Simulated scan of single mutants.
Amino acid sequence: MKIFNIHEAKTHLSRLVDQAARGESFVIAKAGKPLVKVVALNAPEPAQMKRRGFLAGQIVVPEDFDRLGSAEIEQLFTGDA
């Protein structure tokens, strides 16, 4: 996310508002300290964004996932050939 100081934001306000309306949010800072985040009104709230399970049914995790490569890893630690 881009950060603009107040002077730069005032100078390019129209362009920045258009970008925010297209979903490209930005932050306005004063003396390098972030003050506000500008987002589109129709942007989903963080609580509305659904992340968990978004790949459900698209990937398969093997049953032995936690043991994959264990023999090779053990060999690296013990030095047995």
Score class of each variant (00 low, 15 high):
9 A>I: 09
50 K>L: 11
73 I>E: 12
73 I>R: 15
13 L>A: 04
2 K>I: 05
57 G>A: 12
16 L>G: 03
54 F>G: 09
30 K>C: 04
76 L>Q: 13
72 E>D: 14
8 E>Y: 04
42 N>L: 12
4 F>P: 11
25 S>D: 06
32 G>F: 07
6 I>R: 14
32 G>P: 00
47 A>P: 00
21 A>I: 09
74 E>D: 12
58 Q>W: 13
65 F>T: 02
32 G>H: 07
31 A>T: 07
20 A>K: 01
75 Q>Y: 05
23 G>C: 07
12 H>Y: 11
35 L>A: 06
21 A>F: 03
23 G>A: 07
63 E>K: 15
24 E>A: 05
7 H>K: 10
59 I>W: 08
21 A>W: 06
35 L>T: 02
24 E>R: 09
4 F>H: 13
75 Q>I: 02
63 E>M: 11
80 D>S: 07
55 L>W: 14
52 R>P: 11
13 L>Y: 00
20 A>F: 06
32 G>Q: 03
41 L>R: 14
33 K>W: 06
71 A>W: 01
75 Q>H: 01
76 L>H: 10
12 H>P: 04
16 L>Y: 01
28 I>R: 02
5 N>I: 04
10 K>E: 03
44 P>K: 12
44 P>S: 07
81 A>G: 00
1 M>Q: 05
46 P>S: 03
26 F>I: 09
53 G>V: 14
32 G>I: 05
1 M>T: 01
35 L>S: 01
78 T>L: 00
60 V>H: 10
59 I>S: 01
